[in-house]
Simulated scan of single mutants.
Amino acid sequence: MDTSHLAEHAGTAGALFASIFVVATTTMRTMIPLRVFGILANVVLFATAIPIHNYLVMVVQAVMLMVNSYRLHQMLQLVRDVKKSVNSDLSMEWLKPFMTERNCAAGEVLFYKDEKAEDMLYIVSGRFRLVESGIELPIGAIVGELGMLSPSNTRTQSLECVEAGRILSVSYSKVEELYVQNPAFGFYFLRLSSARLFQNLDALEKRLAQQIAKNAEAKPA
């Protein structure tokens, strides 16, 4: 059997294996396995194009291999960063690549209580205050994420800019998209939001206890 026949059979076998990978990807619901099988298909198709010197296929598959590898790296990094956030200081630095920047002026109200909630915010600089509770949020805080978990998707408090600063915002639809692409992300995000909810409840309990103590001291004997 000459070299041309070997190349032809190798190409046929490679195309068959690549087709199996492609069919397998159609049955997958999550992004990480999809990217992995896409990479395998790219490698097989690239390898089978070498014996027949099909440079066009080689170039296309090389580009697709780089794209799939990069996207897989992004998703794995996202999951690692969320895990790290859950197990440490609950920082949401990992969401920055998916957020849009916005400058805020002093006195500006970013959202009002009971209005429809569509995004959550990350405070980069400036001073911001929750109007109803009087709580001032520090730089690096996330606000508005619990509206996504609320059945009515409404704001529970108003947010005012006390001192000009900058925020980053991400829409709930983007967060939902990340969840659909990778259920692991959704799981860790839920844990993160739950931890923040318990932190908020703890802060409110402390404020209530302080208020009760002040009232007791002010009460005449």
Score class of each variant (00 low, 15 high):
His5Leu: 15
Ala24Thr: 10
Phe198Lys: 13
Trp94Tyr: 14
Arg29Leu: 09
Leu178Lys: 02
Met28Ser: 04
Gln211Pro: 01
Ile212Asn: 11
Glu177Phe: 05
Pro138Cys: 01
Phe46Val: 01
Glu108Ile: 07
Lys174Arg: 12
Leu95Gly: 07
Thr12Val: 10
Ala184Tyr: 10
Tyr122Ser: 06
Ile123Trp: 02
Val23Gly: 11
Gly147Glu: 02
Val86Ala: 11
Glu115Gly: 07
Ser169Glu: 03
Thr100Leu: 00
Lys206Asp: 08
Ala106Pro: 06
Glu145Ser: 03
Gln199Phe: 00
Gly134Lys: 09
Pro97Ala: 08
Val143Ile: 05
Lys96Phe: 04
Leu204Pro: 04
Cys104Pro: 06
Ala203Asn: 10
Leu178Gln: 04
Ile212Pro: 04
Pro97Met: 06
Ile50Met: 14
Asn68Lys: 00
Arg29Ala: 02
Ser173Glu: 14
Val86Asn: 15
Leu178Glu: 01
Ser88Ile: 06
Asn103Met: 11
Asn182Phe: 06
Ala184Gly: 05
Met58Ser: 03
Ala216Thr: 14
Arg80Ala: 14
Leu201Pro: 02
Leu146Trp: 13
Glu163His: 03
Asn182Asp: 12
Val170Ile: 15
Leu110Arg: 04
Met148Tyr: 13
Lys84Val: 12
Ile52Thr: 15
Arg127Ala: 08
Thr100Gly: 01
Gly134Gln: 06
Leu137Asn: 12
Leu192Phe: 14
Ile50Leu: 13
Phe46Tyr: 11
Ser173His: 08
Met31Ala: 14
Phe185Ser: 04
Leu178Val: 05
Val175Glu: 01
Arg71Glu: 13
Val36Gly: 07
Ala41Ile: 00
Gln74Gly: 07
Val44Gly: 04
Leu190Met: 13
Lys96Asn: 08
Thr154Glu: 13
Phe98Tyr: 13
Glu132Lys: 12
Leu95Asn: 03
Arg80Leu: 12
Phe46Met: 01
Gly165Arg: 00
Leu149Arg: 09
Tyr188Met: 07
Ala41Thr: 03
Val23Asp: 02
Ala221Trp: 08
Glu177Asn: 06
Phe187Gln: 14
Val109Asn: 08
Leu190Cys: 01
Leu110Tyr: 01
Pro97Asp: 07
Ser85Cys: 08
Val57Gln: 10
Val43Leu: 13
Asp89Cys: 12
Gly126Trp: 07
Leu78Gly: 01
Glu136Arg: 08
Met75Leu: 15
Gln157Ser: 00
Phe189Cys: 05
Phe21Lys: 02
Asn42Glu: 10
Thr3Ser: 13
Gly144Ile: 06
Ala105Ser: 15
Ala218Gly: 05
Glu177Gln: 11
Ser169Leu: 09
Thr30His: 11
Ala218Tyr: 00
Gly147Phe: 07
Glu118Trp: 10
Tyr55Asp: 05
Phe185Lys: 01
Glu217Gly: 01
Ala18Thr: 07
Asn68Thr: 04
Glu160Met: 12
Lys206Phe: 01
Met58Trp: 09
Asn68Trp: 03
Leu208Tyr: 10
Trp94Asn: 06
Gln61Arg: 12
Ser85Gln: 10
Gly107Phe: 07
Ser150Gln: 09
Gly14Gln: 01
Ile50Glu: 03
Tyr112Trp: 09
Arg155Phe: 07
Val124His: 09
Gly147Gln: 07
Leu6Trp: 15
Ser69Ala: 15
Leu149Asp: 00
Glu136Thr: 15
Ala7Gln: 08
Asn42Val: 00
Leu121Pro: 02
Trp94Phe: 15
Arg102Met: 06
Arg191Phe: 06
Leu6Glu: 13
Phe185Cys: 04
Arg71Asp: 08
Leu72Lys: 00
Arg166Ser: 13
Asn54Ser: 09
Leu16Cys: 09
Ser193Glu: 05
Leu178Met: 09
